[in-house]
Simulated scan of single mutants.
Amino acid sequence: MSRSLRHGALAATALVFSIATLSACGAGNDAQSLQVRPDNAATAVDSIKIQNLNIITQPEPDAEGPAVIAATLFNDGTKQEVVEKVTLPGTDATVELKPAKGKGPLVVPAGGRVIIGGKNNASAVIENGRQAGADGSVQTVAFTFSETGDVALDASVVPATSFFEGFGPNTLPSAKPTATPSDSATPGEPSTGQSESPAGTETDPAAGAEHEAATH
């Protein structure tokens, strides 16, 4: 075989190998990236897979209020798995779990999945969201399953903005009232034209907060 023919054969072989490699990578990426952002934490232990894990805090960095955990849990086993608890190791934060419908344990059915976070899905709420860490940091999240046991992985702490807006906390803090002193008021003396509110007509701050939360 001449040198030119050998070079042509080698080039053709390299081209076929490159196409095959790219095709395999493309298929793998498509399979793995379905509903999963590539920068989100994911892991697999035994029959349990956890994907798309994030801790989502209040949209404003100085706002106080709950945070939530968002994730998708897959169970490839033949037995259902109960999520017994979720913790944030190294913190005092507590996580309240609720299934998508009704009360009871959070169950990942055999051969099925459970989405945590977002409208009409199961929820995992951190009451004091700032215990989860500052936005942009990383916090370990540990899931305890009835069959598999503990599965821990690191999650990004992100605010409920942009892509994560629809998955953030349902309860947002109400605005703090701003005092507006009267121009005619004299220090130490009551302002003219103002009277005390009649009994029973004061605004309940709790009711206002509930109304504000309901509007969100």
Rank of each mutant, 00 (worst) to 15 (best):
A42N: 11
K176I: 13
S174R: 11
T43S: 11
K103C: 02
I116D: 00
V16M: 14
T91L: 02
G111R: 11
I69S: 00
G77C: 02
A185G: 15
Q58H: 07
A134D: 11
A213R: 08
S47I: 02
G8Q: 15
V108I: 14
A214V: 05
G102W: 00
P109W: 05
P159D: 02
L88M: 06
T91W: 00
E210A: 15
D46T: 11
S184P: 04
G112D: 03
T201W: 09
A71V: 14
L88Q: 03
V151Q: 06
F164R: 02
T148K: 05
V158T: 14
L53Q: 02
D76P: 04
M1T: 12
P187Y: 00
P38Q: 03
L172E: 00
N170W: 11
A214Q: 12
N121Q: 13
G104S: 03
D183Q: 13
E84W: 00
T87V: 11
T201A: 07
A27Y: 12
K176P: 10
F145P: 01
S191R: 00
V157T: 11
G188E: 03
K119L: 11
A134W: 06
L5N: 07
Q51S: 14
V107H: 03
D204Q: 05
F164W: 15
V16D: 06
A20S: 15
R3H: 12
T192M: 04
M1K: 10
G112R: 08
E60H: 09
L5M: 08
C25E: 09
D154Q: 10
H216V: 05
S184Y: 12
R3K: 08
A185C: 10
D135Q: 13
G188M: 02
L10A: 13
A100G: 02
V125L: 05
H7N: 09
T171N: 12
A11G: 10
A110Q: 02
A71K: 01
G104W: 03
A207H: 05
A134T: 09
P190H: 07
A185H: 07
N54K: 11
V158M: 09
N52M: 07
I55K: 01
G111H: 09
S182Q: 13
R130W: 07
A132G: 15
S4R: 13
S33I: 04
P61Q: 05
V138E: 09
S174N: 10
K119S: 09
P109H: 06
A42F: 03
S197W: 06
Q32D: 10
P177E: 08
E84P: 01
D76Q: 07
K85V: 04
L5C: 06
K98L: 10
T180A: 10
D183L: 11
F164H: 05
P181M: 08
P59S: 08
I116M: 01
F164A: 04
